[in-house]
Design a protein around this nucleic acid. Structure first.
Lengths: 135, 135
DNA sequence: CAGGATCCAACATGATACTG
DNA sequence: CAGTATCATGTTGGATCCTG
């Protein structure tokens, strides 16, 4: 998601006259693909090496993992520690800033426990209702 | 983000031996592009017509807005009401299920107020540190 | 071991034109 | 007004091979 607004063209409108959504900046930082599984792991399992993360995350590729880790490092949510050995060893550890997200995560898990069944029920109803499917 | 895991190929690993991130399913539902601005608007400004949403959201195209609204409708987070008039009138309104997300949004805004300055400071430090930029 | 470099396919999104 | 249809483009992420 991009919080910035600009641009002019047919089919779009110049400006949002209303206060832009204040949730979006955090969404940009934390909720792109793979970020919550990475932070969740480091939060709950402690510091971890690159390949250990990779294995525990399942299907992520090295390229994508590298990219996500770098973004999270840049945002100050985790720390990368490079031990110059042969073979090299690199540890990733969550920071205090990263840890400060956990109340949000907890609330989200709680919401999911309470409400995801309702979401799935709504989805089934919608799918059985003849309304057009979102792509 | 996709919560499902599977696949096997070079460069990836078969299974995640650890509990998958329980935050991801909600991220899939709520935090794809434009969803939080849409929900935020409907939560705070009340029911709205298609073009009103479009104008207030700024640069979104009709196509994208249609698609996002349909997903949110399917997930039970908002209701679409079609008034068969000429010209047609369609209203979008948040549901109780959609409203139940607001504590999460509030916590996120609070976190942002407290910590986004730290994130930006970390970004500047990183950018000045010579470390490779994430793409 | 921890990535880097390429190439490529899928998908998301934009521009534009059209319609019930 | 509230979309749909189509075409074009941009961005992501995967596959694959390579290396300090």
């Amino acid at each position: 998601m991009t919080s910035a607004r600009a641009a002019t063209a047919t089919g779009t409108i110049r400006q949002q006259p209303y206060d832009p959504c204040p949730v979006s900046p955090l969404v940009d930082v934390v909720f792109s693909r793979w970020t919550t599984p990475i932070l969740w792991l480091l939060q709950h399992q402690g510091p971890m090496r690159f390949n250990e993360l990779r294995e525990r995350l399942g299907t992520i590729t090295a390229k994508t993992l590298t990219e996500r880790l770098r973004q999270l490092e840049r945002d100050g949510l985790l720390i990368r520690t490079h031990h110059p050995q042969v073979p090299p060893r690199v540890d990733y550890e969550i920071t205090d800033l990263g840890l400060s997200l956990s109340p949000i995560f907890r609330l989200m898990v709680e919401w999911s426990d309470d409400n995801m069944p309702l979401v799935r029920r709504a989805q089934r109803q919608y799918d059985d209702s003849g309304r057009p499917r979102p792509s």
